[in-house]
């Protein structure tokens, strides 16, 4: 079943790889990627936005690594859709007893709550202009908001919309089962999975290129200097995938709050961010000048890596948070903390 879902996802995203690439603007300083309406419709028809909620809640109750495995697969083709955001939004809504999102959804923080009205703006909301529903955490309330106004159209260096939103109409709220740090780490885990996917694709492209590109009368992949770099990249790609799955496996714990999910998610974002920073330069170095051109398909991957590692908390922020936890526990509890997979006690 899980294999089937992932195979189906891989096939679907591969079919839309060309459209996904074509959706990129020539100049990312000017505009964001175009919305892939046709692919989003298929994503909805397949029920992917409801991958995580239980069957009782109207979802498909896929194991978290399968559901977010689809996010990783989408990233291998640089698919510009808020698939992961919509999955997590629906999962949080379901557990709060709120209705599922209409259409594509996103996650945000920022505004305050005054009765059933939101005050203030949410900045850099992923695909904010396309999100019909936004799930926000405001204090201890989970908020389901629709009908946002976009006050600023912006995007990340990969051209993915990162918009500022505000709301005037009434919103639905319920007690939230996650705190703000956990909410942000759910976003971080989506990015960790996406980074793992993008790294996977960048590694495949780079290996293929090294085997095909000839210089000095042989494929450059035969040179030990290239091989050693590629091996370094592969170890980081492997670590990123393992890190992202480590956090994803503990997703259910996010609703309980033992600290295990948050520690794993911090570690994952730290590790995948570092892997992105090490691997993207190797991919470009191996490709040479062709990899630096707009027509070549490496940059939709590497520009995402450079964006995603800074979204929902960069390595420094989560290292501070994880380090604080470790130092507070002290040396005698450091090893037990690691073997409890980051659970606090």
């Amino acid at each position: 079943m899980q294999e089937m879902v992932l195979d189906m996802g891989a096939k679907l995203f591969a079919e839309h790889a060309d459209a996904s690439f074509a959706a990129h603007p020539d100049d990312v300083t000017e505009g964001a990627v175009a919305w892939l309406a046709e692919l989003w419709d298929q994503v909805e028809e397949l029920g992917l936005p409801l991958a995580l909620p239980t069957e009782v809640q109207g979802g498909f109750e896929l194991p978290p690594t399968t559901a977010l495995g689809l996010v990783r697969l989408a990233a291998t083709q640089a698919i510009p859709l808020p698939l992961g955001e919509t999955m997590i939004a629906n999962w949080l809504l379901a557990h709060a007893g709120l209705p599922p999102a209409e259409g594509p959804a996103s996650l945000a923080l920022g505004p305050t709550l005054d009765g059933d009205r939101l005050t203030g703006t949410a900045a850099r909301v992923a695909f904010g202009r396309h999100a019909q529903t936004v799930v926000l955490l405001v204090g201890d309330r989970l908020v389901r908001a629709t009908g946002a106004t976009v006050t600023d159209h912006s995007h990340n260096i990969a051209g993915e919309p990162r918009d500022t939103l505000e709301w005037t109409r009434a919103v639905e709220t319920a007690p939230a089962s996650v705190d703000e740090q956990t909410f942000r780490l759910l976003g971080a885990t989506l990015r960790s999975q996406a980074i793992a996917g993008s790294l996977d694709a960048a590694l495949s492209m780079t290996v293929a290129y090294a085997n095909e590109r000839q210089q000095f009368g042989r494929p450059i992949g035969r040179f030990q200097a290239i091989q050693q770099n590629m091996a370094v990249m592969a170890t980081h790609v492997a670590a990123a995938g393992a890190a992202a799955d480590m956090a994803t496996d503990l997703l259910p714990d996010a609703l309980v709050g033992t600290g295990a999910f948050s520690a794993a998610a911090m570690a994952a974002k730290i590790r995948t961010g570092e892997a992105a920073g090490t691997s993207a330069p190797i991919a470009h170095q191996t490709h040479g000048a062709i990899g630096y051109t707009s027509e070549y398909r490496l940059h939709p991957l590497t520009r995402r890596l450079w964006s995603w590692r800074d979204e929902w908390g960069r390595e420094a922020e989560w290292s501070d948070a994880l380090g604080k936890r470790v130092c507070t526990l002290g040396p005698d509890d450091f090893w037990p903390f690691l073997t409890r997979m980051g659970a606090l006690a």
């Binding site: 730290i270 501070d320 948070a321 994880l322 380090g323 130092c327």
Partner: peptide
């Protein structure tokens, strides 16, 4: 400890957690 120490400990803890998982 100071922030640079906390940050370094956090980073090494993250690496250990992932290596142990692998």
């Amino acid at each position: 400890p100071d922030q640079s120490s906390v940050r370094a400990i956090g980073r090494m803890a993250a690496h250990l957690m992932v290596l142990r998982q692998m």
